[in-house]
Design a protein around this nucleic acid. Structure first.
Lengths: 353, 353
DNA sequence: CAATATTTGGCAACCGGTTGACAAAAGCCG
DNA sequence: CGGCTTTTGTCAACCGGTTGCCAAATATTG
């Protein structure tokens, strides 16, 4: 493989051009044109405009291309066209399991449709996020923002430049993919009601979080419907630690069931309550949100309202790609269903013994 | 959704050039040149070759650039130079928490040094991996392979084209970043020995896994040193489910302590043993590997040998970027330390009651 | 102050595709 | 078979930077 092939063809004086570290220069459409005996532009058309050249020229060119194992140079293509076959995904925190499935869903869809996914993280900061988005805009055809922290207006401004899809939040005038929390929540609340609970606490997420607001609304509505009392508590941060910290407040409310803004909070809360001697679910039922990785590692495993995050990622990618290709702009909001995943952390209330 | 929306606004005549969807064309070095009254090539030099132009021309150009809020067109730059300020990271499974911190470490380092990270997933398949790698090679300056599944030879072949760094595996002639398992393992085994254990089972990972082999070697060596008996078991797959399946075998060995190839196996194993009525760690101690997200969600929380995955990702990125910039090629293998994270799943053996 | 060494800026070619305009070739018709 | 439409391939300009080479401008030196 590495021994001298074409003695001097490749060797010599060569000013060492593009061809990577070893010696073989990459084939270009000019090389193909020469081999096939046609004009470079014909090669370009054969390779990208189906039907634009006659069947036999097409074949000729394809064979030549295969022979030289040609690959288009994406930059050369991007330069005149502006298209890169690439789109960006910005998440608030790569290590937050909420995003894992979103990333995977998007990545899978991208690959399937011959796009490449570029990933960036905003470290939960609105300014970092905006910076990352701006940077990306230059190199991608479109952008997906998962649970963005920046203003609606910033998002709309970006969206004027290139297609943007938002996950987990609704922004007027921008296509969005959001889980519809109502089904999952009402299942959860009905289940709690059926188990004899009468007072439900909701531990909210970050104050500016769109999703947290939706979930609280959902909980209120469902509780009203089931004639349960609902109280809202604030958390310091939507993490395991935040969950631990809110445990006192939860106990103070006297609620026998808790829904938390996300699973991380639920897990921390459960740990703290258990450490204080409470038995879950005998003394208190706990229900999380998202069904993240690890939600079933706990003892008891966590009951949670699952958002189909993989679907969100895939849906957003599909929406974006359609936007990129489709002529008209359908846009609009794509809603995906949530559902209750009943595990061991919720159940019948045991009379305090 | 499908009905005609914007009748003609979007449609029509507009030759619609580079400038995004709204009207403002992006500034080019030609625009800057015009404003600053110099030649485009001077602008190019001022912007990329520090010190090549005089201070005052530099200032002139920078001001003009700022005024037009110019941003280089990455494609135009990549075309002649081949450099893209981008590198790829291929992981076997985006949803496997082992990779989360690797991704983050790499992403952070990339951003810090003004590079962009492109992510791809191989879905645990050697061929998908190779395909993805080939695809990427065209558009990135270098590549990081995390726990690659493909042959050493394939990796070396890729490495001839562009700089490549491998994580979690050693490949001759290719720079690698690997956790040195010995420290962590010997800490773990010593701790087990101190707690009265005499027979240790190791649940192996995939047969071809380089890392699994290293871990088994480490366990053998440490056990020998501490005069413990070590037995090896195979798992069907390195997941929670695989852990459950191997539980029978583990009990059959009569070992009172188990180390598993990774945390997922440990968690599955623990769940299954507990379901069968065993108490952890009173009846059996369990130690995992990696300290993945969620390892402390279990009851008891999992003792595990932590690999500094974030460091691995960051280290690999640094290595790669140095390779990209440094003239010489230091290469070689970067070893990072592992350590025991002592939690509740391991401890003193209780006399069977 | 002339002669030489060093900066600094301009010219033009090039990276590798894409695309509008147009002419040659082919197909169709009566 | 001539005239007309349609298909197919070519020409040339362009996307927006980079860079080798050279000449003008400036600095250094005897």
């Amino acid at each position: 493989m590495t021994e001298p092939k074409m003695p001097d063809v490749a060797a010599t004086s060569a000013p060492a051009k593009k061809h990577a570290r070893d010696g073989k220069p990459n084939a270009t459409i000019y090389d193909i044109a020469k081999v096939a005996g046609v004009n470079p532009s014909t090669v370009s058309r054969a390779l990208s405009k189906p039907g634009r050249v006659s069947a036999k020229t097409q074949k000729l060119i394809e064979d030549a291309a295969a022979g030289l194992n040609y690959q288009v140079n994406p930059f050369a293509r991007a330069l005149p066209t502006g298209r890169t076959n690439t789109f960006g995904l910005i998440v608030a925190d790569i290590t937050n399991p909420t995003f894992f499935d979103i990333v995977r869903g998007a990545e899978t869809t991208a690959t399937l449709r011959d796009y490449t996914l570029v990933l960036a993280e905003s470290a939960e900061s609105a300014v970092t996020e905006l910076t990352a988005a701006r940077r990306m805009m230059a190199t991608v055809d479109g952008l997906i923002l998962a649970s963005p922290r920046m203003d609606d207006d910033d998002i709309r401004t970006l969206a004027r430049d290139k297609p943007i899809v938002v996950i987990n939040r609704e922004v007027d005038g921008v296509p969005c993919v959001v889980p519809d929390v109502n089904k999952g929540i009402s299942e959860a609340v009905r289940s709690l009601a059926a188990n004899g609970h009468t007072k439900v606490a909701f531990v909210a997420g970050p104050p500016q979080s769109w999703m947290s607001a939706r979930r609280w609304e959902g909980v209120q509505a469902a509780c009203e419907w089931s004639r349960l009392e609902a109280v809202r508590l604030e958390s310091t941060k939507p993490t395991v630690d935040g969950g631990r910290q809110v445990a006192r407040d939860v106990r103070a409310t006297g609620a026998t069931a808790v829904l938390t803004y996300n699973d991380l909070l639920a897990i921390g809360l459960m740990q703290e309550l258990q450490a204080a001697g409470m038995v879950v679910p005998d003394h208190i039922s706990i229900v999380g949100f998202d069904d993240i990785f690890g939600a079933d590692f706990t003892t008891p495993p966590l009951t949670t309202v699952r958002s189909p995050l993989g679907e969100c990622g895939a849906g957003a990618a599909t929406l974006l790609l359609d936007l990129l290709h489709g002529t008209g702009e359908p846009a609009g909001t794509l809603r995906v269903e949530t559902e209750l995943v009943l595990r061991g952390s919720s159940g019948r209330l045991l009379p305090k013994g």
